[in-house]
């Protein structure tokens, strides 16, 4: 995607938004940024990044399988991501508890998912361009219908998150005390994995399965460096994710390089800059008196 860049930024934006594809990309990108920033914030807090990564990768066989069977790609993403969330939840609660032993289980699911994706790709011959898109994103191929689906799912996920947010925070920070206060932490574990699966499925459709982390991890992780107040941290996370997507779409439109690269680079740049800036002012954790 290359427009002709001038230094008149307003004119550039008007020029860019003359294309339906770019308008849809901005709409979809914004929806996904808000969703990923909020769900990702809890994921980072709960140290479930590996689970999030796996759920995103599972989108790849889902989409590839849908293409092979001639079904909707969106359907493929959601079916596989949500099913994988349930599988991880079931395998997790089968174990004793905690996040430590779940990584091996998740790794197994991830390897199997990737292998299945390759199988579907090879069953559906002549799919090579599509594979790159599934893995690294398809910002400009988004239709108005897709935007509607993304918005609908995002509204549902965010509504659920608004209801369970506070007990989820409690259970994530302080599981034993939360349970003693009657918070159903096991149920919340599963519900959160489903929300994470839905968010990963949404983000995969924009950034591709491999670059989901640009939106799901980097803005929340950056926000948590900036402030330790949960409300502000969530707001910073959303603001940053939206900014990252907008900047990346704008730069991507006027440069010969893929948008996925710009999303990741912008998000990474923000994180690196923040950790340098906050690292200078923040002292090394005081542990001496422990």
């Amino acid at each position: 995607m290359t427009g002709t860049f001038t230094w008149n930024l307003l004119a550039d934006i008007r020029d860019m938004w003359a294309y339906d594809a770019m308008v849809n990309a901005f709409r979809a990108g914004t929806i996904v940024a808000v969703l990923a920033a909020l769900v990702g914030w809890f994921m980072v807090l709960r140290r479930q990044s590996f689970a999030g990564h796996t759920l995103a990768l599972v989108g790849f066989p889902g989409a590839a399988g849908a293409v092979w069977l001639g079904l909707s790609v969106t359907l493929g993403y959601f079916t596989f991501c949500l099913a994988a969330a349930l599988v991880i939840a079931a395998l997790r609660t089968g174990g004793r508890r905690g996040y430590s032993e779940e990584s091996a289980v998740i790794g197994t699911v991830q390897a199997f998912a990737l292998a299945t994706g390759m199988l579907f790709v090879s069953l559906y011959k002549g799919f090579l361009n599509g594979t790159t898109e599934l893995l690294f994103g398809a910002f400009t191929g988004i239709t108005a219908d897709q935007v509607t689906v993304l918005a609908g799912v995002a509204v549902v996920v965010l509504a659920v998150l608004a209801v369970i947010g506070r007990p989820l925070l409690f259970a994530s920070v302080d599981t034993d005390v939360a349970r003693a206060h009657g918070v159903p932490s096991r149920v919340l574990d599963t519900v959160f994995l489903l929300l994470l699966g839905a968010a990963a499925a949404e983000a995969s459709q924009i950034t591709g399965a491999l670059l989901v982390f640009a939106l799901l991890v980097l803005p929340p992780a950056t926000a948590q460096l900036v402030t330790a107040r949960p409300g502000r941290s969530l707001a910073v996370s959303v603001g940053l994710a939206v900014l990252v997507v907008w900047v990346a779409l704008f730069v991507g439109y006027y440069s010969p390089y893929p948008i996925g690269f710009w999303v990741t680079t912008t998000a990474f740049g923000a994180y690196a800059l923040t950790s340098v800036l906050t690292g200078r002012t923040r002292s090394i954790p005081r542990r001496a008196a422990a």
Partner: peptide, 9 residues
Amino acid sequence: LGLDGDRWG
């Protein structure tokens, strides 16, 4: 959280 962490919404 000890005060109202178990409240929904």
